[in-house]
Every structure is written in structure tokens, then in C-alpha cells.
Nucleic acid binder design. Structure first.
Lengths: 233, 233
DNA sequence: TAGGAGATTGCAATGCGTTATAAAAATATC
DNA sequence: GATATTTTTATAACGCATTGCAATCTCCTA
């Protein structure tokens, strides 16, 4: 690698690390491209040269994390069915270690209306889910009827939309975990085999009850309210 | 109602109508609060007084639409199981009449990371899904095990995340429809009764095949690509 | 009809992401 | 070591959502 390219990689790393540090310090609010440039000791134009947009920087931060996450998940010893639920709980556990950081990063990533979904679903994340699905089919836990790509995308989307609500402050982390696992249990249950049917159905029912406990009173006000949704604050 | 309040309502209506008109003319890009104020013949401060934010204006636009949607849906004669799928296809049909308008409105609504989820899930939309779920249980199409609130929220979220991808340009309208119906079929299938099990399972499989046809080659490039997600443009 | 409350207005200002431009620095090539 | 190429830098600028403020208008009330 030439000197130039090496220096570029170094600068990229410097910016990603600065982004991470800044997020951890200031959280969502204090993070701006100008602040990032200052923290990285670099001009405001440089992150744009190297990444293209604020969101792309966030993606780089998140991708650095994904490696660590997948390594940890690979170490966990569970069967081909529990891995789906373990993947969720490991992610939420990770989020709980630095909630404001993850919230801010995920907010920034998703906040443009999803223009970067492609890399979310076409990239390594999709590959992970798809692999789990294929393994589960092979292990006899899922019907041969499943189309792995479609099914994996559906799972990823289920998780994603719950994450989005956590990010926006609607859900707590336990709620996020419960919702994602509930959605997973439902989808998996629809494609279950005799070997997995009971486990999945009872998982779904259990998550329902867990959710009921978690948010019943939180939403009661809204569910009984007239119609809402109108005026400003 | 006092004259003052009536005038306020009129101004609100004027702004909502202007927002709608502006959206239809300019679409996503040309829509700004300044442009809206001008179109409505009103100061830039007024929409903020009456609604609070750009997003709240969009919500008002969307809520005006919801009434029309529900009226049309109520007229459709299908059984308590098909209504879920009909609700999806009616929405996408509606979107197809003015795609750039709906895209722009939904984009603006969802684009803040979901700070208005509450009214999405706690408001009339949630009530609609929940009602369908309860009716389906009563009709014997869904197991007594379902907790209607949790299940309805899960459905709403499924639909929502697919909409989000359509809004961001990742999906076409037929794809949106297929994805939402696929997700619905999976969730419903997990809670099916003998009266509905076959219908739902075959629906899920059918949607899988439809999806496969729709996007297989679209995603192939991404699925076979290295890892992507890195640099700017 | 006069006074007061409430809302709208015009406008300036803040901070944001992003882009453009010219100068300066770092690197590659000979 | 001189020259050419690439990249960073500093800075100004654009359009945006949102807020604050003083002035003005409109309606309600006494």
C-alpha cells in the first residue's frame, strides 16, 4: 500500500475513532460534523472527502462494531433455533453498555429515511440472518418451504423497526428485546417443523405476556384516548 | 365555537390544504416550511404556532387521508382473514394514485427517527389493526392465544417498516405490497387455527415466490458483493 | 366603545448538513 | 532536487428547520 493510501486509512480511522469518542461524550445532541472535525483535528471538508456524508461516517462506526458483535455471537453455544433469540439479546446487551452512544449512532444512520438500507440488508447483516435461516432448515427446525433471502430480510426488518423505536425513545431496552423476540417467534413459528413447533409457539406466547407486563399501563392512556395526533405541543 | 377558534380551525385547514397542494406540485424536494407558508398565504411563524413542526403538519395531512382510507376499506366485503391483506393492498393502491405525494408525506413523517410513533401506534391506526385481530379471533381464524394489542402492534410495525423502504426508494409499490403481505401471512400463520392454517401458509409461500420473482436479480449484485458499506461516493 | 388578551406578522438569528473555491501542504514522479 | 499530482485546509456560502422578539392586527369583554 502506498504512503498516500496508508495515510488515508489512518485519517479514516482517526475520524471514526473521533466520531465514537464524540458520541460517547456528547450523545446525539452535541454531535455535528463541525464538532467531529474539531475532535478529529481535521478540517470540516475532510470527512466529506473521505466518507461523503455524516451518515456514512456513522455507518463506518457501526460496521466497526459489527465485527466485535459477530465474534461474540459466534462464541455462544446454542442450537440453530435459539441463535435467533440469542442474537437479539446479545445486541440489546451490547446496547445497554453504552446506550446513549448506540442510540445516537443508530439514530444518525436511520434518520435519513433509510437511504442506506441497501447496505443494511444487502451487506453482512443480511448474510448473517440468512446463514442462521439456512442452518435452521438444515437442522430440521424450519420447513423446507422457507425462501432464505425473503425470510431473512423479514427478520432483519422486524428487528430493525423495533430498534428504530428504541432509538426514538419509544421503547426501553427490555421492551426492544421482547418485541424483537416476539416478532421472531411469530415468523419462525409460521415456518416451524414438528421439531420446533412447540418451542416456538410457547416462546411467542411467553413474549406476549412479557410485553403485556412491560407496557400495558404505558399505552393504556393512549389506547383509551379519543384520537389524539393533532396539534403541536 | 368562538370566532377566534373558528378562525384558527380555518387557518389550520388552509395550511393542511396548502401542504397537500404543495406536495403534489413539488414533491419531496420543493417542500419547505417557507414554501408552505407562502403557498398558504401565511407567515412562516404561523405553521409553527398552529402545529409545532413540519412533521406535525405532515401528520395532519396524513390523518385527513386516514378517514378516507378507512371509509373505503369498510366498504370492501371480505372475511375476517382477508381483511388484513385487503388493508395492505388498498393502501398501496391509494399510494399508486399519487405516489410522489405519499412518498413525500410519509418521508417527512417518519424522517425524524420516529418521534411520532406514539400516535402511529397508539392512535386510530392501532385501533384499526386491533379491531381486525379481535374480529379474526371471534371468527375462529386466529387462536385465542393472541394478545390483540401486542399482535396488532407487530402487524403495524411490519407494514410500517416496509412502507419506510418504499418511501426511501428501496422498494417498488408491488414489492411493498408483497413484503407487507408476506410479513402478515407469517405472523398470522403463527397464530392460525385449523380454519385458517392452510390458507395462511399457502399465502405465505405464495408471497415468497412473488417476492423472489420481484427482486431476486435486483439483490443478486449485493448478495454476491464483497462487503460494501464503506466509502463515500 | 375603549381596553385588553390572544394570535399573526415580519424579520433577524442560530445551528445544522453540505458544497464550492482557492491556497497550501503532502506525496509521487522524473 | 524540481516538478506535477493529489489531498487537505480554511473559509465563505446555500438552503434548511426552528426560535425569539417586537410590532401589529383581530377579536372578546366589560
Amino acid at each position: 500500500m502506498s504512503n498516500r493510501e496508508e495515510a488515508k486509512h489512518l485519517r479514516r480511522r482517526k475520524i471514526v475513532r473521533a466520531a465514537r469518542a464524540l458520541m460517547q461524550q456528547t450523545g446525539d445532541a452535541g454531535f455535528s460534523m463541525r464538532a467531529l472535525a474539531e475532535q478529529a483535528g481535521v478540517s470540516i471538508a475532510t470527512p466529506y472527502n473521505l466518507f461523503g456524508s455524516k451518515q456514512a461516517v456513522m455507518f463506518a462506526v457501526l460496521d466497526a462494531d459489527l465485527e466485535y458483535y459477530q465474534k461474540r455471537l459466534a462464541k455462544v453455544r446454542v442450537d440453530e433455533l435459539d441463535v435467533f433469540f440469542k442474537a437479539v439479546s446479545l445486541a440489546t446487551t451490547l446496547y445497554s453498555t453504552e446506550p446513549s452512544f448506540y442510540r445516537a449512532v443508530l439514530f444518525a444512520v436511520y434518520n435519513d429515511g433509510g437511504r442506506e438500507f441497501r447496505s443494511m440488508f444487502g451487506g453482512p447483516r443480511h448474510a448473517m440472518w440468512k446463514g442462521f435461516v439456512q442452518d435452521a432448515v438444515k437442522a430440521g427446525f424450519l420447513s423446507e418451504d422457507v425462501e432464505p433471502d425473503a425470510f431473512a430480510i423479514n427478520l432483519g426488518r422486524t428487528f430493525f423497526s423495533a430498534i428504530l423505536e428504541w432509538v426514538s425513545g419509544e421503547l426501553s431496552l427490555p421492551e426492544l428485546e421482547a418485541w424483537a423476540q416476539y416478532g421472531f417467534a411469530l415468523s419462525l413459528s409460521a415456518m416451524s417443523t414438528p421439531a420446533s413447533a412447540e418451542r416456538l409457539h410457547s416462546k411467542a406466547v411467553a413474549q406476549q405476556q412479557r410485553l403485556q407486563k412491560l407496557w400495558k399501563q404505558k399505552y393504556r392512556a393512549h389506547l383509551t384516548a379519543k384520537n389524539g395526533t393533532s396539534a403541536g405541543r
